[in-house]
Amino acid sequence: MVIGRYITTVHGSGGFETLEIIEKLIVHRVPENLRKVLDGVGLDVLDDGSSMRIGNTHIVISTDNFTVKPLFFPGGDIGHLAVSGVLNDLVMMGARPIAFMDGIIVEEGFPRDDLDRILESMIKLLKENNVALIGGDFKVMPKKSLDGLIISGTGIGLAEKPIIDKIKPGDKIIVTGPIAEHGATILAAQLGMLEQAQGLRSDTRPLVKTVLPILEKYRDHIHAARDPTRGGLSIVLNEWVRGTKYTIVINRSTIPIRDEVRQFLDALGIDPLGVAGEGLAILSVDNEVADEIVEELHRRGEPYATIIGEVIVPEEEYLAGRVIAITEVGGKVVVQPNALNLPRIC
């Protein structure tokens, strides 16, 4: 990809373009020995978070910025999203979140009541998950230089051994819940199509109580875990498989997705596989324990958890590093990592 003279929304879509800009403009500049510290992972892997080791303890850290519009949406708000997003990145690393730091930037003239609601929802979620708020930052930008409010969040977690994504042939791919719920809701809101709540609702929530215990229990059998946020399921699977000799094959009709979400995205001509969820995880796990893990997920409160595919060693060389979907009619297609979808009429 040529980055071009100006940064566009494509570069921030969370797709391969984002990865590329990060690699070309950032990672590339950092000497190898400064890409990680203390026996941990950092820019060398670009996983959900970074880590370092002190004695036998792995400290996992993740930082993210949240710029969602609208700030309040069915199923949550930007504060709720910031906490969920950061905690989920820690969970995906197999870490138990212990602390959070927030950076709030508001536009001058922002209603105090809205700020109040956002902070309340942020802190409520931290309390529910027993995560401490140990610091942060508060800034105000002049009127019109920022649209409303954005949040940066940094989370700290502890893990005996972090999960560093590395799929293995034979792995089963598990999706823990229905896909595309958050992205579809936000898109509908942005297009002014949410005048009545009609079944679209963001799934934003932390996976600390439902998914983390399973990641801890089956730690050695879980080879990769990621939350399909920006860029959705197709980006996660493509990132995992890219550069390997394997193929990920998914059975598209088994992917959990609610009718309302599918129909809405169909109406806009947008592929649900590229749309964000904020309350689910994608796992790549040992074949032997895959069913057991799905059952446990059901028991823990993720009733839609499903095996949607597997990691294979392809016969055809050109399929290595690709994601292939078996379609609803038995056809086969390549799942491309395109993250930016514009609604269409054609």
Binding site: A184, A188, M193, L194, E195, Q196, Q198, G199, L200, R258, D259, E260, V261, R262, Q263, F264, L265, D266, A267
Partner: peptide
């Protein structure tokens, strides 16, 4: 009209 999860 109702289209999937939205009314428009």
């Amino acid at each position: 009209v109702k289209m999937g999860g939205v009314v428009k």
